[in-house]
Computed example of a mutant assay.
Amino acid sequence: MLGEEINSFFKVWLTVLTSLCYCHAIGKIVPKGTKRLTFLLPLVCLFLFLPLKINSPHLGGLTAFFIVWLGNFKLLLFAFDRGPLNTHLSLPLFVTLACLPVKIQQNPSSKPQLNKGISSSSNVNYAVKGLLLGIILCAYDYVEFMHPVFIKLLYSLHIYFFLEIVLAIGAVVVRSFSGLELEPQFNNPFLSTSLQDFWGKRWNLMVTSILRPTVYEPTLRFWSSVIGRKWAPLPSVFSTFVVSGVMHELMFYYLGRVSPTGEVTWFFLIHGFCLTVEIGLKKAFREWWQPPWVVTGPLTIGFVLGTGFWLFIPQFTRSKVDARSFEEYAELGALLKSCSERVLRVFGQSKRL
């Protein structure tokens, strides 16, 4: 089964790469605006369909995120010559930027010693997270003895560590072959001082970077002309969370192929509303009172975890993503064991010869 999924994965990505070559050509010959958008919309619809060809929660989930969310949103921006894609990019660079969360390095040779120190520190950081992820995977063998809240906490940490490690590996590969940098995904979210800090600067930064030009900035310009620049961020932030909620519902559908219940959307609506209130209060009372981090930090993390345990994390169980992921881990482990046994057998035969 895993072999079939890998085969489907490669077929899907071959289609994606071919489609992006078409988009690059369209950008050269069709002017920006609604005309270019008309030529790109069939590809947007195709990208919405392609993840349905992959049943693996890991391969399918990453594919859906990269092409349905990041890729499609970048193509919509490209239709109007906005965002990271433009007609001056070479074909390989255009394809890489379109389907992967990467960015072009600015002054890559500057501060080499500092970068070296940061890299060394990051290696230790990722090694610790890899060890913790391994402990979490082992802990799943004893879930029948755990409290449901603790299991949800394990799921939350699993998602966080898994994405951190996978994207770190991806960053190394991308940097080695193209000199590009993968966009950061997390920035120590457990140190968040507010919802604004959590969502804007620390959690899921790839999503933040694509929602800002596609949703937040256009709505900000609209509301600035209606209610003024000072208060325009409030409806703009809430609109961004509405779109994020809908897109997360779609991601869960790709993962589990289960009809949405709306709970994930409600999670983002609640956070969008609370963040809107928080920003409004900051604008109104910033000069009077600023609570210390020792108060706002635990409140922020507690609110995120509490609403996540209530509305977000249960979707993994409802769609059986957790069970299918464990089966995939078992298949991968068996495959690696079989391959290692074959290598040892061949090596032993060669020594006897």
Rank of each mutant, 00 (worst) to 15 (best):
F316R: 04
N188E: 08
D322I: 09
P108N: 08
I210W: 04
S224A: 14
V304M: 11
R36M: 05
R324V: 04
G33L: 04
V143R: 13
I29E: 10
I29K: 13
T261Y: 06
S90P: 09
V343Q: 07
V346I: 03
S110V: 00
L336A: 09
R229I: 09
E328D: 10
I227D: 10
R36S: 08
L311I: 00
W199L: 03
V295P: 12
G272D: 01
R342T: 11
W288Q: 15
S176A: 15
D81V: 00
A79G: 05
L353P: 11
T240S: 14
T296N: 02
S120N: 13
Y126E: 11
F241E: 02
F347G: 13
A79K: 00
H58G: 14
V264T: 03
S178C: 09
W231P: 10
L40G: 05
L62V: 10
L344S: 09
P233H: 04
V207P: 03
L77F: 06
P218A: 14
E181Y: 08
D141G: 14
L167D: 03
L131A: 15
E5G: 07
V242M: 05
I169F: 15
T307S: 11
M146E: 13
I135N: 09
T307R: 00
P213I: 01
F49Y: 11
K230L: 08
T193R: 07
A330N: 10
